[in-house]
Nucleic acid binder design. Structure first.
Lengths: 210, 210
DNA sequence: TCTTTACAGTAACAAGGGTTACAGAAGGCT
DNA sequence: AGCCTTCTGTAACCCTTGTTACTGTAAAGA
């Protein structure tokens, strides 16, 4: 685990901090599709992403979902950060987008490191900033873009995150992520295919010209 | 200014920090409608809100606007925080919603206080958390609510922020804030009036049953 | 007072996207 | 092969929202 920590975080954290993380953190594996945090959970550990990708979802009272953004290696979940610090319930759901490896850190340590290590403080601030920026981007997307543009952006993001221009996903799953209906997605996907931007197969979509 | 700082922040910051703020901060006044931060600005000072209210807007490339949220006394702008720390341009516009009094703090001090005062650190973290929560709320609103619900929520929020159930605003201004057209707003407002939820006058709207 | 301008009301129409319904195709299982 | 389930394609329809156009009215200014 020490080596993996160094690979993913060595250029951010000083050696002493890496060692501390190594000694108190517990390594966890989450298979693709596995739930990591559920809405309403009290969060007692903070995840540092070592490998893989996580998708962060929002849900309203009716159970309608919306994809907020993806996290990658080197990221942490600022929503979780804020839950830990504020001792509040999680406002979001986190699901493994790919097979994922992460280090869980007890929240007591967070407080401690915040005053002890400047690099940790900087990391926490940078995470907050990154997440605010992501949220702004999400707002731009849903406020200013039409569904066809949102769909294309979704496909591109998903291809990038999974490092594969062929995405394994059903139309129904896309509809959930974008908070619309399957029929709408099928309609728009067909249009994108006619425009030569994607190729449709059953259970997968190839994104052209990435 | 010292007294005002104590009134607004005395229960958060220790006395020594209040004194430091008092000695390096400069008091500023912004009249209602006055611009405080523009998109693309490099932010060299961080505002602490003493009195009044500020509205935070987002804009896309076409110049279309969208209201993100309001700030009140005791708040600071976490977007600005993150701009300061990251030395990046502002992603948002800040406009005085009412006559506003604020204390501007040079960013160098922020760094310094972050390691020096726990109360400052806690304040910064709490601000980030508050802003993330606001952003989530904004996303819920635009993703899950219809325009009539968004409009009603807007009117209620605005009445609360201005501490007055009579709102001075034109239909066109509401349309800008909600990123829609004047005709749509007039239509929905009329419906709300027929439902007895508001009363319409020229240049102002009375929100009933608050 | 007369004119101008900003604001508000409303109708008619267009477009985007959500809903329902049904049919066909692919793959898995026995 | 035959059956079943899941996924996809498509048509028809409706509702919400956006657009255009025109009218009336209040306030402000000359």
């Amino acid at each position: 685990m020490l080596q993996e920590l160094k690979d993913a975080y060595g250029f951010i954290f000083e050696d002493k901090l890496i060692e501390e993380i190594n000694s108190v953190g517990q390594l966890q594996f989450k298979a693709k599709g596995e739930k990591i945090i559920e809405i309403g959970d009290y969060v007692k550990m903070m995840p540092l992403l070592i490998e893989g990708a996580i998708k962060i979802m929002r849900e309203d009272k009716e159970g309608d979902e919306l994809l907020l953004y993806f996290l990658e290696r080197g990221d942490t979940c600022a929503m979780t950060l804020s839950c830990c610090l504020g001792q509040t319930k999680s406002e979001i759901r986190a699901v493994a987008e790919r097979d994922t490896k992460l280090v869980m850190i007890p929240i007591e340590k967070m407080e401690e490191w915040t005053s002890k290590y400047k690099s940790w403080r900087d990391f926490v601030f940078a995470s907050y900033q990154a997440r605010l920026t992501e949220m702004l981007d999400t707002i731009d997307t849903i406020a200013f873009m039409n569904m066809d543009e949102r769909l294309m952006k979704y496909l591109e993001d998903k291809a990038k995150i999974n490092q594969n221009e062929v995405i394994s996903v059903t139309h129904q799953q896309i509809a959930y992520d974008l908070h619309t209906s399957r029929v709408v997605i099928s309609r728009l996907l067909k249009k994108l295919e006619l425009d030569g931007k994607i190729k449709l197969q059953r259970n997968s979509i190839e994104v052209m010209a990435l």
